[in-house]
Design a protein around this nucleic acid. Structure first.
Length: 653
RNA sequence: GCCCCCAUAGCUCAGCUGGAUAGAGCAAUUGACUUCUAAUCAAUAGGUCGCAGGUUCGAAUCCUGCUGGGGGUACCA
């Protein structure tokens, strides 16, 4: 059910008489931005008036007169400069509500033309610990896949994991040199991640010790430069010169701050190494960075020993990741990591070269693109392949094996340029039929306004975050509820905690950068998953109190009555579910579904807390029945909507 | 240097394919639990939509310039 679509259909033939840009005009029918204007407003009379050389009000009147809206609308008004305000017919609302009520899909139609989608999300590097940034990709990709499938598309999720990179060189090196056999036997995950962190720290330590003097000299130079600039500023007279110097000073100040940051971070690394008692180890492993690269290269070249270790370690590392996915209840249709494409990379490069797209430059195999300064490198000077090579192989694989109409890459927006290049090369290469889309999302920032990942020091681990979410929810669950036993409280806390975490990511426009705030992410009031879950639970409370069998109500033919405006408002909102889902897929923005559900729930709570609408106290049997149906349809819409976001509901909270 | 993104209430953010008086949540203030669950509701207060121009009947939204912040920029992913 989609009232908007039906309105568009009604207006279509009439509007077509005025313009050939019918589509654009019909898009000017929108939900009314104020309830006093009705349910929808059509804004096309103003532009049409202009092109027809008539007054917009005149055009509006002509169009309204020529359009048969009698079934759909009970009130059509022309207001202001030529807005057409539309109020849906109550009978029409009631009959569509009845259809939605008796439908498992709540009246949501499937799309007319289904497409094959591959949704590429999460994509962590195994062995590196997951961090908060990974939740964002995971949760958005998961929701989009669910929504696509619900709307009738064929979407498959693929976790393109980084299982072939330098981190394995690190682990292999660590395993060979520093392993604690007993610890590995007992808890391989913990030991491998210790080895990873240790090798990484050692490499960083060496880098820091060599770079630190350079950095300090650089800082000195910058400070001298700053002093000079300040002197220049004090004697400068001409306006433009003063402005220029001012700008230079601000840039120098920025560079100084950058430089100081780097020094601090280098010093922190050195301090951490000595704290961990690793300074002597570092001395004994001077060439660890090159050694790690060597181990990686050997692995890629098919060295039997390293291959065997990789095969031994990979499942262990994946298990660590899997634990997080299990808690988030996220699954993938495919998990084809980088290693899966390893043996196809050489042929990708050969093919690009043979077709004349790629050529050698500076020793590396490159594809030069018209709109980009730098080429896309598909093979390094040392012969190794890159991320881009794997991505190209992946596109080829997906097109050939899944007949994909669209691939969505749910990845951090800092990789924007990489994807622009990738898509262009893919199109050049012959894969130009499918929509390749970078569903980018903003960086996770720390409270200091700097990107979260680059911050040295404490990175909030994902497991810890999930624990904290559940712990906070448990505290509140215990305060609020005394009728549930310990096990139920814990289960509630789990559902509420994980839900709030997911919703925090989903409810925000994905394009915006994201300031990580523990309290905000784990908030349990306001526009949160908890609010929606609570709305659902309160409907269930009604069923327990009114002593009416839910199945009996559901099996009777639905009949609705609108005794108050608020019931009608709730009805209109309920019938907008399909619109919301359609909107999500226009630009793959799950926050639009969150907005919808929040609005719906708010409308429901208003209904719920209006004494005249109290279901239990409703005397008229038919009105009570109607209200019970409204409650049930609200609950089912919330449950379905949250389900599409992969957030569960609870009967009691 | 070049390219991309962002700037909206004290805070965190919606709204951006141009539409009527710019919205939520948090925080603040007030009121509502003998009531279908107060993880809620009702209300008050809070704004030069970074600045300056332009296009338009109409601009937070589109264009130009400026300021401020972030990101990317040849062999990391």
């Amino acid at each position: 059910m989609n009232a908007l679509k039906e309105l568009q259909n009604c207006f279509q033939p009439v509007v077509a008489k005025y313009t050939d840009q019918v589509e654009a005009m019909l898009n000017l029918i929108r939900p009314a931005n104020d309830a006093k204007f009705g349910d929808f407003q059509a804004n096309f009379a103003m532009p049409l008036g202009k092109s027809a050389g008539k007054s917009p009000r005149e055009v509006a009147e002509e169009i309204v007169a020529a359009t048969d809206l009698s079934e759909l609308c009970q009130n059509v008004e022309i207001a202001g400069p030529g807005f057409i305000n539309l109020t849906l017919n109550d009978q029409w609302l009631k009959s569509n509500l009845a259809t939605a009520f008796s439908d498992e899909r709540l009246g949501v139609n499937k799309v007319e033309t289904a497409r094959n989608y591959i949704v590429d999300y999460s994509s962590p590097n195994v062995a590196k610990p997951l961090h908060v940034g990974h939740i964002r990709s995971t949760v958005i990709g998961d929701a989009l896949t669910r929504i696509l499938n619900f709307m009738g598309h064929h979407a498959k999720s693929d976790n393109h994991i980084g299982d072939w990179g330098t981190q394995f060189g690190m682990i292999i090196y660590g395993y060979r040199n520093f392993r604690d056999e007993a610890a590995f036997e007992k808890e391989p995950i913990t030991e491998l991640s210790r080895l990873y962190r240790m090798v990484r720290l050692l490499i960083e330590f060496h880098k820091s010790t060599t770079k630190l003097p350079e950095l300090k000299t650089q800082l000195d130079q910058l400070q001298t430069e700053l002093t000079k600039l300040k002197q220049k500023q004090s004697v400068a007279e001409e306006k433009s010169a003063v402005k220029k110097i001012k700008k230079e000073i601000s840039q120098t100040n920025k560079r100084i701050a950058d430089s100081q940051d780097q020094i601090r971070s280098a010093e922190a690394t050195i301090a951490k190494a000595s704290e961990d008692g690793l300074v002597e180890t570092a001395d004994a492993h001077q060439d660890i960075a090159t050694a790690v690269l060597l181990e990686t290269a050997k692995l890629h070249a098919g060295d039997a020993d390293n291959q065997a270790l990789w095969e031994q370690f990979l499942p262990v590392c994946k298990q660590d990741m899997q634990a997080i996915y299990d808690r988030l209840d996220v699954t993938f249709d495919m998990e084809l990591g980088e290693s899966y494409y390893n043996d196809q990379l050489a042929s990708v490069v050969d093919d690009l070269e043979a077709k004349g797209f790629a050529r050698t430059s500076d020793g590396a195999m490159c594809v030069f693109l018209e709109n980009f300064e730098t080429p896309m490198i598909v093979r390094k000077r040392d012969g190794a392949f890159l991320y881009s090579t794997t991505d190209l192989a992946t596109i080829k694989y997906r097109m050939e094996n899944f007949d994909a109409d669209a691939c969505l890459y749910v990845v951090d927006h800092r990789q924007h340029e990489h994807f622009e290049k990738l898509f262009e090369v893919a199109s050049m290469w012959g894969y130009d039929q499918a929509e390749l889309k970078h569903v980018s999302f903003g960086t996770v920032m720390g409270k200091d306004g700097k990107p979260f990942q680059t911050r040295s020091g404490t990175i909030v681990g994902l497991a810890g975050l999930l624990d904290e979410a559940e712990a906070r929810a448990l505290v509140i669950a215990k305060e609020v509820n005394d009728s549930l036993d310990e096990a139920q409280l814990k289960e509630n806390a789990r559902v509420v905690g994980i839900g709030s975490l997911k919703y925090a990511d989903l409810s925000q426009n994905r394009a915006s950068d994201y300031t990580f705030d523990y309290d905000k992410m784990l908030a349990l009031k306001g526009n949160t998953a908890t609010y929606l879950q609570y709305g659902y639970a309160r409907v269930q409370g009604i069923w327990r109190k009114v002593d009416v069998d839910i199945e009996a109500v559901r099996s009777k033919p639905a009949e609705f009555e609108f005794e108050t405006d608020i019931e009608r408002a709730l009805a209109v909102q309920l019938l907008r579910f399909e619109e919301a889902l359609t909107d999500v897929l226009v630009d793959y923005k799950p926050n639009l579904l969150c907005n919808y559900l929040f609005d719906l729930c708010q409308t429901y709570f208003t209904f719920f807390s209006t004494p005249e609408c109290n279901v239990k106290n409703t005397e008229s049997e038919s009105l009570k029945f109607s209200r019970l149906q409204l409650c049930d349809l609200t609950a089912r819409t919330l449950k379905t909507g949250l389900g599409l976001l992969n957030i569960s509901v609870l009967d009691k909270m």
